[in-house]
Amino acid sequence: MALDLGDLHALFRQIVDCESVSRHEKELADAVEAALSGLAHLEVTRIGNSLVARTTLGRPERVLVAGHLDTVPVVDNLPSRLEHRSDGDYLVGRGTCDMKGGVAVALWLAARLTEPAKDVTWVFYEAEEIAAEYNGLGLIATQRPDLLEADLAILMEPTDGRVEGGCQGTMRFTLTTLGTAAHSARSWTGHNAIHDLRPILEILRDWQGHDPLVEVDGLTYHEGLNATMVSGGVAGNVIPDRAVVQINYRFAPDKSAAEAQAQMRRLFDGWPMEVLDLSDPARPGLDRPLARSFVDGVGTEPLPKYGWTDVARFFGLGIPALNFGPGDALCAHKADECCRVAALDECASALGGWLDGSGEAAR
């Protein structure tokens, strides 16, 4: 497949219609590599199904722009279709929002910005939607960390064209209560483990009454602590001797993952806890001059990022990072996932203009 780098909208649709569910990005990665390798101003490196393309102009600052090639599974939502709505044309299909709109913008700009005011590293990577061990950014950081060196990273996550700073950390864990099994006709001879979940649920309920708003570097994050799954019991006439509640804590970037875990262990002291997943957040870093410059260039007030994104990986590498891209994140992963086509033009103009220093993208 030869990608059309001359027409942003056509390129967008080509990228969307090339199915690339996680672990099956090869066809799209091959097409992106072929497109980038034909550009004389870029040095291209491939690691697995991830591509890194860099300018080497000796500029005093380097900006990294990244987008993941993979999507969640297709559910009869490919090939894409164009819908005409009251506020413009929308491309509907898997990956349109998360995040092939951003990939299309980055690839289109990579072809056009031959002499940007800042050196640029373009990263198109695999396996963001699945377990961290497969993540293309992680593989690059392990094998060639020098390729990710930058003064600022911009992750093309769907933000509806707004800058979203940092990201929340996330912790998933289970708490277990233990009882004694018995026949339900003689329940007093046993001990019901499900009933013992009550104090845990009361802690969770009471937590909702405290102020979950946390300000970090000028952005206000809304924390969340919720039971998401409950399991217990083996039959309808058996008193359960074990019950498990799964809890998800979304925490602000004022604390590390280790600090968040310690906080949860104090809150739920007395119950066996198993940590299933724990990821550090990322501070916004919008006080850095280069990030501030980009925010000013976009021209809208930055927002906090709810949820976890790969900006946390860059934060862990000591690189300030922010989220910016076309598409409304509320559409991500839906069966009717979509992206307003004009949003790509708006993001390309803002990002391209800032990178080349002209105030507007190359046309």
Rank of each mutant, 00 (worst) to 15 (best):
I47D: 08
L107Y: 10
G327L: 04
N77H: 15
D277P: 04
D241C: 08
S184Y: 04
C338K: 13
E43G: 12
L152Q: 11
A321C: 09
A104C: 05
M273R: 13
G352F: 04
R172M: 06
F124R: 07
L330W: 12
A262Q: 15
D211E: 02
L276Y: 07
A181V: 07
M229G: 01
E27D: 12
A141G: 02
A185W: 00
P116Q: 06
E164I: 03
A257K: 14
A2M: 07
W271F: 13
L51P: 00
L82W: 11
E83C: 04
G209R: 14
E133P: 09
E126A: 13
D356E: 10
T114K: 15
D146M: 06
R266N: 13
T176R: 14
R265K: 10
V72K: 08
T180F: 05
R340N: 07
E360H: 15
E301K: 15
E128L: 01
T300C: 03
F324G: 08
P212V: 05
R59V: 02
V295A: 06
R292G: 15
H24E: 07
G67N: 03
G357P: 10
A252Q: 09
D98S: 05
T142Q: 15
A282V: 07
L267F: 08
R340I: 07
V32Q: 08
V52H: 12
I140T: 01
A227W: 11
G236F: 11
V163P: 11
L148G: 00
A332F: 00
D30Y: 00
T71E: 05
A291P: 03
H195F: 14
R94S: 10
R313T: 04
A53L: 05
E43L: 02
D76Q: 14
G327V: 05
D336Y: 14
T180W: 08
M229I: 15
G236N: 11
T228G: 13
A150Q: 03
L57G: 01
A282D: 08
Y221N: 03
L204S: 04
G38S: 12
T180Y: 06
H9T: 08
K255E: 13
L303N: 13
G67P: 00
Y249T: 03
V103S: 13
A111I: 01
V72R: 09
N135Y: 00
V120S: 01
L267T: 06
L139A: 12
N192H: 11
L278Y: 11
F314T: 13
L78N: 04
G88W: 09
V230H: 09
I239W: 11
V103I: 14
C338E: 10
R186L: 13
L69E: 04
D17K: 03
I203P: 03
R283N: 04
V44L: 02
K305D: 01
D160R: 09
K334L: 14
I140Y: 13
A34Y: 14
L155M: 14
L152R: 07
C338H: 15
A34D: 10
D206H: 11
I247G: 09
D287V: 04
L57A: 05
E126P: 03
G233S: 06
A127I: 01
L213K: 15
T142D: 15
L148K: 02
A132C: 08
V74E: 09
D151C: 04
E346M: 10
A131E: 15
A31L: 05
A262M: 11
A361V: 06
L355K: 03
A53G: 01
I239M: 06
C339A: 15
Y125K: 03
A111H: 10
E33V: 03
L344H: 03
R112K: 06
S37Y: 12
